[in-house]
Each structure stands twice: as structure tokens, then as C-alpha cells.
Design a protein around this nucleic acid. Structure first.
Lengths: 180, 180
DNA sequence: GAAGCGGTGCGGCGAATTGTCGCACCCCGA
DNA sequence: TCGGGGTGCGACAATTCGCCGCACCGCTTC
């Protein structure tokens, strides 16, 4: 990440995009941030980028298509896909289309950078890290966190998305600091 | 799937393995089923297989290692990875190691076969199928199903794994036919 | 500036769910 | 035949949830 890496950031969530852009710039990268696949296609054609960060849920065109497009433009380009809460199917699809890695959204900037560098970060140990079976509370908690992030921290909206009462969400958040 | 396809099935769960084997045989395949990575490595070396189905959580060696081994033995071999409840990270890792697809475990035999054939089944539409945000109930229910399968239908054990009371699990199962 | 709108925190209360204990029954290996 | 473990189910108290309502705030629009 040294000679002024140029990155293309594509995400329609303004807040998230700007925060991530700042974080990446702070780490020494040059970041071109756009909000749509259309814009991304345009600027990608102009400049030589060293990597791309693509949100999967984009207005209009799917991020998946953008991945394919970017990959076609410059086959070796490291692309990482970001998404609010991903499915295994779309993750595999993204990789098949040329993405290098696939991260879920409350994503650590350092994690993103190392993914772009190709450090899979996880394959360190040959044996799989046995995840154990997550408790019900655990799963619930993680899902709440994902949706909350997805909703941009908006509790009311998150509650609607989760199909529970806002009050209940508040209580869950208040009690549940870390279920484990 | 015509001229007597030979498949290698690797899963340590006897019940699940035999059920799946029967289902595959019923669909016209010849199936060699083994319970461990060690056995799998042995028989894989002997016979010409047309595909392999590998459980990720195997006793001792990880299914991931087995995937790599099988892939090394015969690079073109279609391998699908099965797992009780998978993570995106391990799914990507499995594909990197040579697996063709990655399915979570209450898996439809037909789905497995089409995955082996390379029909990604999902990539039909270029645009992503927007999964929407799963409700809390939905997520809970799906997780319960996974764990229940993992426990081989043993309600008491599943309840322990989920960290809830057996009685509660019973009630959830009784009420929740399909939360949606 | 004053509505109007949507978000947040919080109290309260009846209804629904959960945790727990107990009991009866079954299957299976010692 | 006994003991261990699984299953279904009833009962009851303890929680939690759904659903009001209220107060307060920031923002956009008249």
C-alpha cells in the first residue's frame, strides 16, 4: 500500500461511503468514491485503479454486474465486495465473477485493505477454525447488528425491518451488551 | 447424470450420510459413502469418480483439507461442500481450494446433483435476487432448523446447543410451522 | 416562527413466551 | 430388570413482547 494506491469505492450509502473513504485516505490511499454503478463504470474506464470496493446492493444495477464489468475492464484488478448481510450464494457468485473477496458490512477498513492485497486473512491455519454452534441469542444478536447497520443506525427502521416492535428492539439493545 | 455416475460421499453423520446416499442412488448414481477424510483419501485414489460430496465438519481432518486433497488428485473433479451451517469465509475458502459449490445442510439431493453438474442454479438471472431483509423470526427459525439437522433431529441436544430450554424448543417447533 | 414529520428514550400494562419442575411413557444396552 | 436418555405435555411463576402514550429534538416546509 505504498506508492499512493488508487482505490475505487462504490457505495450508495453516503454516510457509510464517506466514512470509509476517510478511513482509507487516513491509511494512505487515494480514493475515488462514487454512489452508483453507472458512475463507477465511467471513472473506471478513465483512471488506472489499483483496487475496487463495491457494495452489492446498489440502486438500479446490481453490484454483481459491476464486479463483472470491472473484471472485464481489467482482469487482474483486486475487487472486494461489501454487503450489508451477505448470503453464501451471492458471495460465491461474486467470486466467480471476479471478486477477490467478500466482506460483510460493518467492515474494518484494515480488513478491506488486506483483502485487496490478497491476504485472505483467514486461511492462515490449514485447519478450519471450528465455529461451534452459535446459540440462539447469538444469532439473534448478530442479525440485529447487521440490520441495524443496514438501517444506518436508525432504530425505528431496523425494528420495522426485523418485524418487531421498536420498543422491543430498544430493550434488546439495552440489555444485550454482548450475549457472549 | 446418465452412464452411471460414480460419486464419493464423505460425511461422518451416519444417518444423514445413508439417507443422502439412498436419495442419490434413487436418482441413478453410484455412490461410495465413507465417514472420514482418511477413508475418502484412500478410495479416491483407487476409483475414477465423477464427483465428490464432502461434509465440512469431519472428525479429525477438516473437510477443507480433503477438498484440497481431492482437487490435487484430480483437478477437474466436481466437488460440492456440504455443511451444517456455513460461514461466508469458509465457503470462499472451499471454492478457492477447488470446490465447485457450497451448500448448507438440509440440502436437497437434486440441488446437490445440479451443483455437481455445474449448474450454479442461482446465476440464472444476471441481476441479483434481492433477498430482502429476513425478519428476526425468520432468522431464528432457520437457525433452529440448521441446528436441529445438525443434532440429527435430537430435540434435547438441539436445545442444549441453542442454549434454550428443551420445552421452549418444543413449543417453538410446535407453533412455528413456517414463519413465512 | 410555527407547524408537521419522523426519530429517540422511557413508563406502564395486559398478553404472550420462556424457564423450570414434574410426570408418564419408550427404547435400548448393561 | 434396571438405569439412562429421549419425547410429549401440563402447570405456574418470571420475563419479555406488543402496544399504547408522553416528552423532547432536529429538520424541512409553509
Amino acid at each position: 500500500m505504498n506508492p499512493r494506491t488508487r482505490l475505487l469505492l462504490v457505495d450508495d450509502d453516503t454516510n457509510f461511503r464517506e466514512r470509509l473513504q476517510r478511513a482509507l485516505v487516513a491509511r494512505g490511499a487515494e480514493v475515488v468514491a462514487v454512489a452508483s454503478a453507472r458512475e463507477a463504470g465511467g471513472v473506471a474506464r478513465t483512471g488506472g485503479f489499483d483496487g475496487a470496493i463495491v457494495d452489492l446492493r446498489l440502486p438500479g444495477e446490481s453490484g454483481l454486474d459491476l464486479v463483472a464489468e470491472l473484471h472485464g475492464l481489467k482482469p487482474g484488478l483486486p475487487i472486494v465486495v461489501l454487503t450489508g448481510f451477505g448470503s453464501i450464494a451471492t458471495a460465491l457468485e461474486a467470486v466467480r465473477l471476479g471478486a477477490r473477496d467478500y466482506l460483510t458490512k460493518p467492515a474494518d477498513p484494515d480488513r478491506i485493505l488486506s483483502a485487496l492485497r490478497g491476504e485472505v486473512a483467514f486461511a492462515a491455519s490449514p485447519a478450519e477454525a471450528p465455529p461451534g454452534i452459535p446459540s440462539l441469542d447469538r444469532v439473534e444478536w448478530e442479525h440485529i447488528q447487521r440490520v441495524l447497520t443496514e438501517a444506518g443506525g436508525n432504530i425505528s427502521q431496523a425494528a420495522r425491518l426485523l418485524g418487531i416492535d421498536r420498543r422491543s428492539l430498544q430493550r434488546k439493545l439495552a440489555k444485550h451488551p454482548p450475549p457472549r
